[in-house]
Design a binder for these strands. Structure first.
Lengths: 196, 196
DNA sequence: AATAATTGAACGACGGTCAGTCAAAGAAAA
DNA sequence: TTTTCTTTGACTGACCGTCGTTCAATTATT
């Protein structure tokens, strides 16, 4: 037999070693040669692990989102009011701490609009359902603690789309000056209506 | 002097003659040679009018949005209730009639996320402000006709981001089955709260 | 003749492939 | 046990084809 490498781990290593490059230049402005050099491997080896450049961004999103979710769960557990939990949940779109993941996510969104493969669609779908369920748990708690009226459920799911849309607009236009304020405002309005 | 071509018009002609190609394959899967052939011109001539492929999508969006806005204005004038006007306004994201512009807009959004130039950002910004003002006019009418409470203004602008976000999700995930229902529902909920 | 417009051959950069190399680790022979 | 042979997975970079982009030459118009 010969050397057996942990393919999954190496895939992650390669993706992570190109993170800085992708953040600074954007995947479409990087060559495979540069990626290989950054990862300290040959050009051909990149293709042992990825079908093309886009897949590297996909891998990075998967890794970093996993990390982000764990951190976010810890963060939310420290908060008590439902309103603050919801705000913290959506702070991903503006806090400086998540700037890097946000940039990668932006590039991944562009890929998803352009040339998604079935795994990307599946990943996005699972993310969406996962976050929806998570949010539902948070809201349910608030209702059980009698903080909120049960009708809030129908409205809160709209915040997902609202936040996503606001984020896209903040990137593609120069009309959204303060994304945090925009998102927080919307959440506040909702809670002002729905708080008991 | 020699031949004087209406550069602006020819630019439009070239863009429009590649519309079908862009719709069916996506700009990133088309070559300049194909574009030139479709437009009945030489490869070099394409570069007399566009800096790169992305610019062609940009030109197409500009042309088609212009048309769309004119049609939409006519449509809205036929409607009387504010609620129906708002619904019609956002129907862009799901009606079959706008399918082509939506596909182009999707590709343009991907470009705007990836490699926007200053003119694209400026265009997106102007669009956003233009639609915002338009919507404000519609709502203002509703308020003056005593159909709506004045507080609706703060909420209605959120629908822009909501609709945009829902659209992106419907494309990138397979979790949004009925976009029309999702958008109409949100508008209905808002109006149920805000109608006098 | 002068100028505007057009063109497609040529160039070069890049993504992707593949034949070959290498190192590790049995298996077989001594 | 030690040595040698064989197999195999990992890795590589030279090579190839494609495609975006340029530009010298050509055509068309006044």
């Amino acid at each position: 037999m010969a050397i057996i490498v942990d393919k999954e781990q190496k895939k992650k290593d390669i993706a992570l070693s190109t993170k800085a490059l992708i953040l600074s230049k954007g995947i479409s402005n990087i060559t495979i040669a540069q990626i290989a050099k950054a990862a300290g491997i040959g050009k051909g080896t990149v293709y042992e692990y990825f079908k093309n450049k886009d897949e590297i961004v996909f891998e990075l999103v998967e890794i970093l989102m996993q990390e982000h979710n764990e951190q976010k769960e810890a963060q939310l557990n420290k908060l008590t009011s439902t309103r603050e939990k919801v705000k913290s949940f959506f702070s991903f779109f503006y806090v400086d701490e998540d700037r890097e993941l946000r940039e990668i996510y932006k590039q991944f969104t562009a890929i998803s609009l352009n040339n998604p493969n079935e795994y990307m669609v599946s990943f996005q779908t699972q993310c969406y359902l996962f976050y929806e369920k998570w949010m539902e748990t948070i809201i349910q708690e608030g209702i059980e603690k009698k903080e909120l009226k049960p009708e809030i459920k129908d409205l809160i799911m709209g915040i997902f789309a609202f936040a996503q849309g606001s984020f896209i607009m903040s990137v593609t236009t120069s009309a959204i000056i303060d994304l945090q304020q925009k998102i927080d405002n919307q959440i506040d309005m909702l809670f002002d209506f729905m708080e008991k």
